Simulated scan of single mutants.
Amino acid sequence: MQKSSNTSIRKLEITEAALKAEELLDKHSNKTVLVDLIQTVSISVLMKTVLKLSKSSPDSLVMLFAHLQQSGKVLFACQVPKGSAGGSAIEWALHVCARLEGNADGSNEFAKGVGKATKVSDVTEVLHWAEEFAHNKIRNAS
């Protein structure tokens, strides 16, 4: 019964991630750096959405955030294409963590983390900062 329940949850998460990814692709088509905020309370949905976006836009650097306003937590996940001039996903995530007083783990291609932000304006500022950080990495590598 537990296995069946877990399978159902995973299917729902995959469906939710696909819908969110489709919306974001419409909004951000052909961007080199895609940074945005989505509505979810699940790090799993956030990660699956990042993976779907990265598959649809394989040359883009992708970082998504979810703000859990009641707890003040901010979830985020990112993916950087292998060999990208944008550096590594873990480097990007750790720099975001420094702004959010949080922690992150991952690899050169994929990372995730959690931090703190009490106000939506704090999250908006971090989104702009994360996007600018990635653009600067790309510019400095050129």
Score class of each variant (00 low, 15 high):
Thr15His: 09
Thr15Asp: 13
Thr15Ala: 13
Glu16Leu: 07
Glu16Ile: 00
Glu16Thr: 02
Glu16Phe: 01
Glu16Ser: 05
Glu16Met: 02
Ala17Pro: 05
Ala17Lys: 02
Ala17Thr: 01
Leu19Gln: 08
Leu19Val: 06
Glu22Ser: 15
Glu22Tyr: 10
Glu23Trp: 08
Leu24Asp: 02
Leu24Trp: 05
Leu25Glu: 05
Leu25Met: 12
Asp26Ile: 14
Asp26Val: 10
Lys27Val: 09
Lys27Leu: 15
His28Gln: 08
His28Phe: 15
Ser29Ala: 15
Ser29Ile: 15
Ser29Arg: 15
Asn30Tyr: 14
Asn30Ala: 14
Asn30Gln: 12
Asn30Ser: 12
Thr32Gln: 15
Thr32Ile: 13
Val33Leu: 09
Val35His: 00
Asp36Ile: 02
Asp36Thr: 00
Asp36His: 01
Leu37Lys: 06
Leu37Val: 00
Ile38Trp: 00
Ile38Gln: 00
Ile38Thr: 00
Ile38Tyr: 00
Ile38Met: 00
Thr40Glu: 05
Val41Lys: 15
Ser42Met: 15
Ser42Trp: 04
Ser42Thr: 07
Ser42Pro: 07
Ser42Ile: 06
Ile43Val: 14
Ile43Ser: 12
Ile43Leu: 15
Ser44Lys: 12
Ser44Leu: 09
Val45Tyr: 03
Met47Cys: 12
Met47Leu: 13
Met47Gln: 14
Lys48Trp: 10
Lys48Pro: 02
Lys48His: 14
Thr49Gly: 06
Leu51Pro: 00
Leu51His: 11
Leu51Met: 13
Lys52Arg: 13
Lys52Thr: 02
Lys52Ala: 11
Leu53Asn: 03
Leu53Asp: 00
Leu53Cys: 03
Ser54Asn: 06
Ser54Tyr: 03
Lys55Gly: 09
Ser56Leu: 13
Ser56Tyr: 08
Ser56Ile: 04
Ser57Gln: 15
Ser57Tyr: 05
Ser57Ala: 11
Pro58Val: 02
Pro58Leu: 09
Pro58Lys: 10
Asp59Phe: 07
Ser60Asn: 03
Ser60Gly: 03
Leu61Met: 10
Leu61Cys: 13
Val62Asp: 04
Val62Gly: 03
Val62Trp: 05
Val62Tyr: 04
Val62Ala: 05
Val62Ile: 14
Val62His: 02
Met63Cys: 15
Met63Ser: 09
Met63Asn: 03
Met63Thr: 10
Leu64Lys: 09
Leu64Ser: 06
Leu64Asn: 02
Phe65Tyr: 04
Phe65Gln: 03
His67Ala: 05
His67Asn: 08
Leu68Ala: 07
Leu68Gly: 01
Gln69Leu: 12
Gln69Tyr: 11
Ser71Met: 12
Ser71Phe: 10
Ser71Trp: 09
Ser71His: 12
Gly72Ser: 08
Gly72Asn: 06
Gly72Trp: 11
Val74His: 01
Leu75Val: 04
Leu75Ser: 02
Leu75Gln: 03
Phe76Cys: 01
Ala77Phe: 00
Ala77Tyr: 01
Ala77Glu: 00
Cys78Gln: 04
Gln79Cys: 13
Val80His: 06
Val80Gly: 02
Pro81Arg: 07
Pro81Glu: 07
Gly83Ile: 11
Gly83Arg: 10
Gly83Ala: 06
